[in-house]
Nucleic acid binder design. Structure first.
Lengths: 226, 226
DNA sequence: CGGGGCCGTGAGGGAAGCGTGAGGAAGCCC
DNA sequence: GGGCTTCCTCACGCTTCCCTCACGGCCCCG
């Protein structure tokens, strides 16, 4: 379970890292808002623990930026106790709000509650199409039983498609999800990676059965071509 | 949005009912734990607002009972401020925990956060007419179970019609929605795309049953021609 | 009953989008 | 530092799609 901790207080980050690591979390730290957004785009954490009072970028702005392309649960940890601050953060897209100082066991319980609800939403851990199996938990792909090696970018694209089987995934959605918020100018590298994925996964790459193109819109992973 | 309020304090329930109703919620009240479970089973509320200190059945027991068959978001409202109580309730399956006395605007914001996450998880939006099914989330169209391929423009028109089933959609509305411009210079391409949609979706394209033309006005998607 | 406007439908040209091969630059592990 | 993997650019051919033109039919109205 990956956790992104965005806070500008090094002492608090260190204490949280120790405690959270002891409870089985994999902690990624970011000292300011801009770093938090970049880290989220790069590492795709399961939960974000966000401080409101950070330099470079306000916490609310971070929430709005994340919500532009991600549904990751956001738990706000803030020293501001006013209800107006809570309302603003929650309405911006945060899922929970805890005021400092907080009890660590309460924080852990709220993290568990967020993780529980999140796992319930995406229960499927393995997607099968044709002779290919995609194990989302293990980040492994097999074809006819033997393992297939994918580059990180190829995997990210395939993962996003496999998490929405049958759904059309917009080109912009893929670009935002993989390269972050900016860079919506596709000069053609998405086509390249799709081509490589087809070469590795499709029976006849020139006539794909599962990794389909929807001209002018995006791509679609079809599990059963029948 | 239906809301189940389980609390044994009549005054608090009355105050909540007034406030929540003013914000568009449909409030169902239950004075004890047993009544709360019964009401939840009968009315299927969208969110449960639960007091921990109730007669007949402890709040924790209510959470466990509900979680046996329902994923409804549960917001606990309790006078107990100890972190042990919060941990117990959250680990039993509650989604959030607010201590009395609480700010009403904070409670409303937390309700909105729960409602938002819930609606995101179950975004099952699909429109059915005749032998055709339009899945708005997946941007997919099936006819008698087999997939139908639409071009981007065809999809945009069908999507707009399907989002307002039964309603008359003006030609200008479609032009503005799809081509962005206020151009009323329809040289006839709307007719062309409607023709292609009928060819792909209607049983007899020359005598459409669902994609109807309103002369001089626009088009209308009729789900049930009976 | 006749005419004018509105609508449906077929064919085709031009343009935009897509697949794919080759190749250079940057990062990573020994 | 060397070799390997990976990311990204460029260019070219091909498919698909958008839009125009043209013609014929239907409805409403005079």
């Amino acid at each position: 379970m990956k956790l992104l901790v965005a806070d500008d207080d090094p002492q608090l980050v260190r204490a949280l890292r120790i405690t959270l690591a002891a409870h089985g979390y994999d902690v990624i730290a970011a000292p300011d808002g801009a770093a938090a957004i970049a880290a989220a785009a790069q590492t795709h954490p399961d939960i974000v623990l966000l401080d409101l009072g950070m330099p470079k970028l306000d916490g609310i702005a971070v929430i709005e930026a994340l919500r532009g392309w991600s549904d990751v649960p956001i738990l706000v940890v803030s020293g501001r106790t006013g209800s107006a601050d809570k309302v603003e953060a929650l309405d911006a897209g945060a899922d929970d709000y805890v005021t400092k100082p907080f009890q660590i066991d309460e924080l852990l319980a709220r993290l568990r509650a967020l993780a529980r609800r999140r796992s319930g939403a995406s229960a499927e851990s393995s997607v099968v199409f044709g002779e290919v199996e995609v194990d989302l938990a293990a980040k492994a792909v097999t074809r006819s039983g033997s393992r297939v090696h994918l580059t990180p970018t190829e995997w990210q694209i395939l993962e996003h498609l496999a998490r929405h089987p049958g759904a059309l995934v917009t080109r912009q959605e893929l670009l935002r999800e993989i390269w972050g918020t900016e860079q919506v100018t596709d000069t053609g590298y998405l086509r390249l990676y799709l081509s490589q994925l087809r070469k590795k996964l499709e029976r006849t790459p020139s006539a794909p059965e599962h990794l389909l193109t929807e001209q002018g819109m995006g791509y679609r992973l079809v599990l059963d071509p029948a």
